[in-house]
Design a protein around this nucleic acid. Structure first.
Length: 586
RNA sequence: GCGCUUGUAGCUCAACCGGAUAGAGCACCAGCCUUCUAAGCUGGGGGUCGCAGGUUCGAGUCCUGCCAAGCGCGCCA
């Protein structure tokens, strides 16, 4: 419909060019908007307002001339000049009725499109360190990323979902050491636990499990473990020096081989838990990409060689630096430490080079907002690698501040005091959790009230949408009980009986679903889909209260059934995209 | 101090490339169940769009300054 009106307006513009009203070189971008107010018709164009200046005339006069030059069209019942120079189009209310039949034919495919044109696009999200279970902060990134990926796929992109596993680096060593110390306790040793270690209950569980399976294989005498280790913070020492010494001691006492085994068991256990957790949350990936693999297969070395060849690296104070400040970063960054180890940033450069090499036309990184300072250096790296930095899009997800009623919930992975995603799912269920997370724009700070989300009452908006779906199902059950059958063709033949205001409104809303999907996807804003579904559900509930569907007149009955079945289909398509269930009864 | 993000109704949030009288939900008030599920519907009150300038036919939206909140500013990840 938009295209149709656009074409008509362009014809009018051509006519005015010939009349000399508009300059020959006028090549306007015609914007047709759906109106927000029914008084303004169905569609509106602001073309006269934007062209008035160039045409050296006032907008209302130009709009009048445009309207006069507009070709006749059966679908358009009225064209009005309004306000400062808007052109409002009123559409024949029956013109949109055909969408009901379209929806019945397309079914689950209704709303899908090909604007993405099969473009290869990668979405990397969550990518939490495998040092513990996912918490509710990760949940938002998981819900946002997965819905965004599904949206992009729905509009025709070739989407690759990926999780970057930070399975190398110091944090992982701290984890392995933490598990080992708990394991020693399991063996019967008594020793202090480092203040900087991972204290969560899951660490004990892994240790318990290893002890159960391997007995005392990894056991070493506690006095050897603690010998000459610098004091921990509570004892007046430095917690970083303390933990680093413990890591080194763990490696020495176990030896490289056993340490590696032990490390791997810890990593696998936690990663399996994360995979399982996300899967149950409705989040699945095409690939789990290992950071350590980049280290092991020489990718990091190769990436740094590439930067070096481009003259972007230099040595200073024993470390190797990337001159990112030449490329928009606020300062240069270390890539190889004084001790010869790569920084996290070094492997991330290699990772992004790898992404580019895999031929993605667009790379979307979804990060927690606390990583925003990291963006300029990654962009700098991509430029230094000789790639087009506009291929990278970084989307930030603000962490949710967690409340339990009025009380703010403090979270820290290290101390083990946090609410896990799994706990949240167990309390509120997958549907409500996903719905809640996607409800708000991702850059928006968000207060997540556990008390509210866990309430199984009508305060929870997910039920409202699901209830609309269940209500349609219920009507169909009633139909069956009355011994009637739905007749699609009879309904189509009588579609013009759908003339009530509620019906026209509902038809207009389901008709714009494809546009909505496209916009939500291209703007990376899944919350638009949620808001749309709430609106659709609301219009359905209103319709339900205002009109009886199961009337004696078979023509009207089937016309209405076709409409509510089309609503049901759109609700299902939207909820499926969100990976939220569609209950047949509630 | 510098940088990024945010600031809209009592609370939580929307507002499509700048567009017409800024909208929902919750909460509050008043109504609607002998009729397809009341987890629903109808109506009502409630606003200095953080503040001040600027850009223009038009600004919640763009620009500048200020105020406030969150985050960041490691040879951590």
């Amino acid at each position: 419909m938009k295209q149709k009106i656009e074409a008509l307006i362009l014809q009018a513009v051509e006519t005015l060019k010939q009349n000399g009203v508009l300059a020959q070189e006028t090549n306007p971008q015609v914007i047709i908007e759906r109106t927000r107010d029914a008084q303004h018709g169905d569609y509106a164009s602001n073309l006269a307002l934007t062209l008035a200046k160039a045409a050296k005339t006032n907008p209302r006069q130009l709009a009048e001339q445009l309207i006069a030059a507009l070709p006749e069209d059966a679908v358009i019942t009225k064209v009005e000049l309004a306000g400062p120079g808007f052109i409002n189009f009123f559409i024949d209310p029956y013109a949109q009725h055909a969408i009901i039949e379209t929806i019945h034919q397309a079914g689950p495919a209704y709303g899908l499109s090909q604007v993405g044109a099969g473009k290869k696009i990668q979405v990397e999200f969550v990518s939490a360190n495998p040092t513990g279970p996912l918490h509710v902060g990760h949940g938002r990134g998981a819900a946002y990323g997965s819905v965004l990926a599904d949206l992009l796929q729905a509009v025709g992109f070739n989407v690759h979902r990926e999780y970057y596993v930070n399975d190398a680096g110091r944090q992982m060593d701290i984890l392995a050491t933490s598990i080992w110390l708990r394991y020693l306790e399991e063996c019967g040793e008594v020793l202090p636990f480092p203040s900087n270690g991972y204290r969560g209950e899951y660490v004990r569980n892994i240790a318990w499990d290893i002890h159960d399976k391997s007995g005392n294989e990894y056991r070493r005498p506690v006095d050897l473990v603690l010998e000459d280790i610098p004091a921990d913070e509570p004892q007046g020492g430095d917690k970083e020096l303390h933990i680093d010494a413990l890591i080194a001691r763990t490696k020495t006492l176990l030896g490289a081989g056993l340490y590696r085994d032990f490390f791997q068991i810890g990593l696998n256990t936690i990663l399996d838990d994360i995979k399982d957790d996300l899967h149950e949350f409705g989040v699945d990936y095409q690939q789990w990409f290992s950071e350590r693999q980049l280290m092991d297969d020489g990718s990091v070395e190769q990436a740094l060689a590439c930067l070096r060849a481009g003259g972007h690296l230099y040595e200073k104070e024993g470390a190797t630096w990337f001159a990112s400040s030449n490329l928009g970063d606020e300062k240069d960054r270390v890539v190889v430490r004084e001790n010869g180890q790569y920084t996290y940033f070094a492997s991330d450069i290699a990772y992004h080079m790898n992404k580019l090499d895999r031929g993605f036309e667009q790379i979307i990184d979804i990060w927690g907002a606390d990583h925003h300072g990291y963006i300029p250096r990654v962009r700098a790296a991509i430029q230094a690698l000789g790639a087009d930095e506009s291929k990278l899009k970084v989307l930030l997800v603000q962490f949710a501040t967690l409340y339990r009623g009025e009380e703010k919930v403090q979270m820290s992975t290290r101390s083990g005091e946090f609410v896990t995603l799994r706990q949240l799912r167990n309390e509120v269920g997958k549907d409500a959790a996903r719905f809640f997370y996607v409800l708000r724009r991702s850059e928006q700070h968000m207060d997540f009230d556990l008390k509210l989300a866990t309430s199984k009452s009508n305060e929870n908006p997910v039920f409202y949408v699901q209830y609309a779906y269940a209500r349609v199902c219920s009507v169909l059950r009633q139909l069956d009980e009355k011994g009637w059958e739905r007749n699609l063709q009879l309904g189509i033949d009588n579609v013009r009986l759908l003339s009530a205001e509620h019906e026209n409104q509902l038809i207009a809303t389901i008709a714009r679903y494809p546009e909505l999907l496209e916009r939500a996807a291209l703007q990376y804003e899944p919350h638009q889909l949620i808001h749309y579904l709430r609106e659709l559900a609301h219009e359905f509930h209103t319709y339900y209260n205002a009109h009886q569907f199961l009337v004696d007149d078979a023509g009207l009955r089937n016309a209405r059934l076709n409409l509510i079945c089309a609503v049901k289909q759109v609700l299902a398509n939207g909820l499926n995209l969100l990976n939220i269930n569609t209950p047949e009864s509630m």
